[in-house]
Design a protein around this nucleic acid. Sequence first.
DNA 1: GTTCTAACA
DNA 2: TGTTAGTA
Length: 136
Amino acid sequence: MGDDIRRNMALFPIGIVMKLTDLSARQIRYYEQHNLIVPARTSGNQRLFSFNDVERLLEIKALIEKGVNIAGIKQVMSPVTKESEEATVLTPDTESKRREMSESQLRRLLKQELITAKRPGQVSLIQGELSRFFNK
DNA sequence: GTTCTAACA
DNA sequence: TGTTAGTA
């Protein structure tokens, strides 16, 4: 994937990201403090977001709207890793690798369900279930 | 005019 | 989370 460089290119300032994601600057900065996103900085210390950052913010927004708190989002979203592929490949222990695989698959499934679930009647149920795992 | 950090009548 | 203050 040589296209990654484009998606990771830091391009827009927070003002544009606000319109793109419909999130407040306060929220965007807050999510950064919790390492949900790691935008680049200009020499003047101003944030520069990439397409990847915007996508992550949109996922975060979707989860927030589902009633998931920061703690929950941290567990559902994969941490900001740039060479996650390498880390996985370099794992020599086959067993631990399998365990990590199933865990990441679980996270992906859960995230998909959270973002997909759109039925009003089930949202509250999902929120209730999530609180058992994430609220602590 | 925009963004940044820190803080709260 | 909003919002305001004082800068850069």
